[in-house]
Design a protein around this nucleic acid. Structure first.
Lengths: 203, 203
DNA sequence: ACCTGAACACCGTTCAAGT
DNA sequence: ACCTGAACACCGTTCAAGT
């Protein structure tokens, strides 16, 4: 387990992220990254032990890209700002964002984000012993929502396909007027966040 | 776009699921599936247009495996039973379950599951025009939770690594007693579901 | 100290051919 | 109607060598 070089890691991760953003995750090969950086594929193995570690680095990079949150805001406003920050990162990097679920990050950036969420929950009045669970609940929902959005699970085309296919099932029939209309995902995200706050801060 | 054969599709999907369960998603190659079925890799292309379609079929299979829910139960109990069903499917097929996010399914099984969730939400008293959003909210949370669990995001080892790394951040310090203890994911899932019902059915 | 070249054991998929 | 064989253009990664 030899020591890894670190100097060009940011440059390599930039190249990898650019490839994933432009051409998708399937196009993200060690060879493609090396080409973009201007080295041989094998040079990358001086910086990352293997492709999995490079993908972990990419998740860390996404967390480092989270927009900072105004510390003047109250707890609830900070949580909302962070939720929108997650969603923006997902929309900017739709191919990479879903990796957040499968590659739990423990980088300094990841821990800093967790700490900000903990602090916001504490400021909302969540009891200390409930904060870790509420953090998992909130981040799970927000990451799941953003992943669904960027992966097409909430797309209008999937919705109308389901509406068509379910036309003779009872609940689909009753709900037909609401299943295939236009969708405003911005508004739905906000409505869901408002509901989420009712869990976090029972009045 | 020629017509695909269907007869041996279930047999092929069984083989694929077995490989993913036993050896993970990386081991799930067309060649490995063909080997297990006892045919040449190219024979699979008579049943699936490409590997992506085979993976879509796998997601459909998972939805078909969802345990049926007792129709005698009330709406809230049925929702709880379906949530536990999702989680059980995830625990049985940890490598494949996360694909549910990225491969929105429109098979008859998928639509049948949606209809059951719609009906349960209606029976809980959710207004018709809110049911589709609540279905997305609930399934997103449940799938995100199950994906987190099977992907290691909730693992004790990740938690203690984060606890160690965040030891000098303010909220981590204050919450230290609660960050690295033993975890009961069964209990946490139930607690989260109870909170989720407070969104679905405001008293 | 950092990078390259050649090689190995794999991939998904196309096309033409076999029964 | 269903399957196979050979081939193509890729993969991630090891090892030994180059500067």
């Amino acid at each position: 387990m030899r020591k890894l070089k670190t100097e060009r890691r940011p440059e390599i991760l930039d190249a990898a992220l650019a490839i994933a953003d432009e051409r998708g995750l399937d196009a993200l090969s060690m060879r493609a990254v090396a080409d973009r950086v201007g080295v041989t594929p094998m040079a990358l193995y001086g910086y990352f032990r293997n492709k999995d570690e490079l993908l972990d680095g990419l998740v860390g990079r996404l967390l480092g890209d989270m927009p900072p949150v105004d510390p003047e805001l109250d707890g609830r406003e900070r949580l909302g700002a962070m939720a929108h920050g997650f969603r923006q990162v997902a929309l900017r990097h739709p191919a990479v964002f879903p990796l957040m679920f499968s590659r739990p990050s423990v980088t300094p950036d990841a821990v800093r984000v967790s700490d900000a969420v903990y602090q916001a929950l504490l400021d909302c009045g969540v009891p200390d012993d409930q904060v870790p669970r509420m953090e998992r609940l909130a981040t799970t929902f927000i990451m799941g929502w953003a992943t669904s959005e960027v992966s097409g699970r909430f797309s209008a085309s999937a919705a109308s396909a389901r509406a068509r296919r379910g036309a003779d099932l009872p609940a689909h029939q009753r709900l037909a007027p609401y299943l295939d209309g236009p969708r405003d995902l911005d508004a739905e995200f906000d409505a869901d966040l408002a509901d989420l706050f009712r869990i976090i801060r029972p009045e």
